[in-house]
Amino acid sequence: MSIHLAEWSPETTRVFVVGLLEWEDPEIWAPFPDAVPGRFDAKLVQFFKSQGVPESQIVYLQDSEATLEAIQESLVEFLEDSDEEELLILYFAGHGDWDSETNEYYFANYDAAEDYEGYWSVSSIIDDIEENFSGSHVLLMADCCYSGGLIDALKERDLSFAYACVTSAYSHNSSTGEWTFTEALMKGLQGDPVVDLDGDGWITLYDFARYAELEMAFIEEQKSMFLTLNDFDPQMQLAKVTKRGTPGGEKRVEVEYDGTWYKAKILEQKGNQARVFYIVDRSEEWVDSDRIRPYEPETFSKGKAVQVEFEEEWYPATVKRGWYGLHFVGYDGYDETWDEWVGSDRIQPA
Rank of each mutant, 00 (worst) to 15 (best):
V53E: 00
D83K: 14
W98P: 03
W341C: 13
Y331Q: 08
Y110N: 12
L238S: 06
Y170Q: 04
D143G: 13
S74T: 02
A274E: 09
G19F: 02
D231H: 07
A6D: 14
E156P: 00
R210H: 10
Y146S: 09
W179R: 10
V308N: 07
M1K: 13
P297Y: 04
Q57S: 04
E250M: 07
T102L: 07
V306I: 15
G259H: 14
E7D: 14
G333H: 09
N230Q: 01
E117M: 07
Y146M: 06
F16E: 08
E80G: 01
K243D: 04
S64M: 09
W8L: 15
Y91E: 00
A30Q: 07
E284P: 05
V36R: 11
Y146V: 08
E221C: 03
K265C: 05
E156H: 09
D127M: 08
T337C: 01
E27T: 13
K43V: 05
F107W: 15
E101T: 08
V276R: 05
Y334N: 14
R291M: 12
N173H: 00
A142V: 10
D345G: 07
E313I: 11
D41S: 15
D99C: 06
L21W: 01
T242P: 00
G333E: 10
P31T: 05
G199L: 12
